[in-house]
């Protein structure tokens, strides 16, 4: 049996949740509503996050273009993903939605630009 303490992020209440995992059964206590239970179950089985960062731009009016993963990726892949983002260099102009890295860190998720950067 494994137990984990979490803080629910579903709303400003921020309930303290206790998750008990026993074989295939997951029990959540401390939640006020069903959203807390859903959050806790996802968080202990398949936690995911959207990663936002910025990549170097060559020949742009600013040095960096902001980017995000186009959907959430496994939490455990965040730093692998960041390694590729930090190595990435794009050429101006950059448009919102441009794919700057396809299939980032083998997640199957693309990294896309979230800012227009014009040429210098």
């Amino acid at each position: 049996m494994e137990m984990r303490e979490l803080t629910c992020i579903g709303c400003p209440l921020g309930c303290s949740l206790t998750v008990t995992m026993e074989e295939q059964t997951i029990t959540v206590t401390g939640n006020t509503c069903s959203r807390g239970e859903a959050y806790a179950k996802k968080e202990v089985t398949d936690p995911t996050r959207i990663v936002t960062s910025s990549v170097k731009v060559e020949g742009g009016v600013i040095a960096k273009a902001s980017v995000k993963t186009s959907s959430d990726i496994p939490k455990g892949k965040i730093f692998e993903c960041m390694k590729e983002i930090r190595a990435c260099v794009v050429k101006a102009p950059v448009r919102i939605g441009d794919v700057v890295i396809a299939n980032c860190a083998g997640t199957g998720v693309s990294v896309v630009a979230t800012k227009d950067v014009e040429c210098l």
């Binding site: 959207i50 936002t52 960062s53 910025s54 902001s66 995000k68 919102i96 979230t114 800012k115 227009d116």
Partner: peptide
């Protein structure tokens, strides 16, 4: 550049630059 903007205005989660755009 982080996300979490626009849930009320556009009913979707945008980054700051996207919300501004």
């Amino acid at each position: 550049i982080h996300n979490g903007f626009g849930l009320h205005t556009f009913k979707e989660e945008l980054t700051g630059p996207e919300y501004a755009s």
